[in-house]
Design a protein around this nucleic acid. Sequence first.
DNA 1: TAATACAACTTGTATAGACAACAGAATAAT
DNA 2: ATTATTCTGTTGTCTATACAAGTTGTATTA
Lengths: 236, 236
Amino acid sequence: MKIPLYRQIQASLKEKITSGVYEEGGLLPSENELCAEFNATRMTVRQALNELVREGYITRQHGKGSTVSASRKSLGLLSLKGWTEVVVASDRHGKTLVLEGPIVKKLEDSAFKPLIDEESHEEFIFFKRLRLVEDSPVMYEHTYIPNENLPNFIKEPLLEGSLFRTLLIKYQIDVQSMTQEVRAVAADKETASLLKIKSKSPVLHLLRKYKTSIDGFFLYSSIYCNTEKFAISSFN
Amino acid sequence: MKIPLYRQIQASLKEKITSGVYEEGGLLPSENELCAEFNATRMTVRQALNELVREGYITRQHGKGSTVSASRKSLGLLSLKGWTEVVVASDRHGKTLVLEGPIVKKLEDSAFKPLIDEESHEEFIFFKRLRLVEDSPVMYEHTYIPNENLPNFIKEPLLEGSLFRTLLIKYQIDVQSMTQEVRAVAADKETASLLKIKSKSPVLHLLRKYKTSIDGFFLYSSIYCNTEKFAISSFN
DNA sequence: TAATACAACTTGTATAGACAACAGAATAAT
DNA sequence: ATTATTCTGTTGTCTATACAAGTTGTATTA
């Protein structure tokens, strides 16, 4: 299974960005320097960099360089980045409470059906998580991960509390893109109480399917989001 | 002011897609054929095609070709999912009712402030539009366009009812990308009655800023969206 | 007939090089 | 001192080529 060079460069840079080797707001090495580092041509390096732009990790400026994405006022959660990176990058104080899991179960949530194509995996690793910004709950998330090729996943804690980073570092699984459906719904009892809002308040509902570097390995998330204080932002 | 070749190819293909020269679901000419047509190399053509992918006009498949995506022209940069198949199959595209405008006014909607940088234009052309799919109202939209370099815009009707198409054909202004903030809110009286839902029902609120091929020329939209039947889907 | 192999197409990845356009710093001219 | 110019390093655009790999239809073979 051969991984294209530009994907390797992309994953390597992403690792260095999320681990802090390249600081937020700082400049990445120039294209020519990256060419030397990875023994690639500029076109190949540029393809990796453009992917990182698409995923929201960097911005680029003509004549200047590639800047590691700076914080935004609203949480850039329509972009690819996982919760931990976004909150850290926006220098707000974010916490994640694991309410349930990880446990192994089947994906019985019927809401996902339109996103899943044909034969799906039998078993998934399941999480229920509540995410807070500055001690107020903002998102309530159900996550399903195929229970394949993830030895010891359930036993060991997440690296720095980040699912995406754990997958990248420990299992070399790079989350690369996402599709989602967005709706406004009235919060049900459970969601409302967890998000500390009134029942039937409007909440954002996101149904997500993440594509990874492993063929056929998709993550699924159902997210309820309180947007009173924080908006979800996206760029394109 | 020189326009890069790949942007010209991009705009040309976009024009042919939105005008129906290339049909929905059909294949675009192959890269090599486009190379011949535009006197460009494959890398240049591919850059144009990749931009169209990013904008959602086409999808590409290894070994096969570039397929024109459905449901782009009638609903701008929004793709609707859920009943889309029905809409496409019945060949009844969404309708748009202009409730108010175009008129010239200032941008007084304070909600836009976080999206606008520095000195903004004094005067904008303003629209209130209601969008329907299969005769049920789905979106209520306020649009602001800088009142600059748009001679006769207010006097003349939109080409085929499409704002983006009018800007592209009559004024060579190509809408290329967008940033937005997304919230779930309770519908106010006006919105609820227009969307034919109960007051205070949850609706999606989108605050958008569109970037165009003209430097400093941005469009702004505030959109309320009924997601009971249709979800907003996004790719990345 | 059904399966296999092949051929001709497509897009994907990658190299090597060239010049243009932009940003910022250093230098020269006023 | 201030302004203009030049220089250097950066990203943006584009050419020309090559091979890999996926898709599809056709021909061959068992």
